[in-house]
């Protein structure tokens, strides 16, 4: 995402990257980033918690306005919970916990469209 942000910014569009992966974003060095301490796959908040999700976005847009130096990552203060035990089981940054030192159980990277529903496939193929 850092690559896209850098390119958009160079094209004249101000950008802000949300990120739950601080080290990855620091390496990619986008113009503005807002860190949320959430597991991968939950960048915009906990499911079915609209107030939490709105608060997260408000903090992100506050960061959008406050960042003045290119390459800044602001900590929004958004946390998954006071209990940080999820971090012990969080796995590789390439996937959400499906590669570990014990084995690689990632989904096969197939070249066929991967529909959420079979009806989506029918709708797309009929379109």
């Amino acid at each position: 995402m850092g690559l896209v942000a850098r390119a958009l910014e160079a094209a004249g569009v101000p950008t802000l990257c949300l990120t739950a992966a601080h080290s990855i974003t620091a390496a990619a060095n986008p113009p503005r980033a807002a860190f949320v301490d959430l597991p991968l796959g939950y960048t915009a908040g906990r499911p079915h918690e609209p107030a939490f999700q709105r608060d997260l976005l408000r903090r992100a847009f506050d960061a959008f306005e406050s960042i003045e130096a290119p390459g800044t990552i602001v900590d929004t203060g958004v946390r998954w919970s006071d209990d940080e035990s999820w971090k012990h089981t969080a796995s590789s940054g390439l996937n959400n916990g499906v590669v570990s030192a014990e084995g690689d159980t990632r989904s096969e990277r197939t070249p066929d469209p991967q529909y959420q529903y079979e009806s989506d496939r029918l709708a797309a193929e009929g379109a």
Partner: peptide, 21 residues
């Protein structure tokens, strides 16, 4: 809808706002 090989899709399919707000 969401599809991706590298993160747990179940919660995002329950509430796509968590990746697409």
């Amino acid at each position: 809808r969401v599809t991706h090989f590298a993160y747990d899709l179940l919660p995002a399919r329950e509430d796509p706002n968590i990746v697409f707000p």
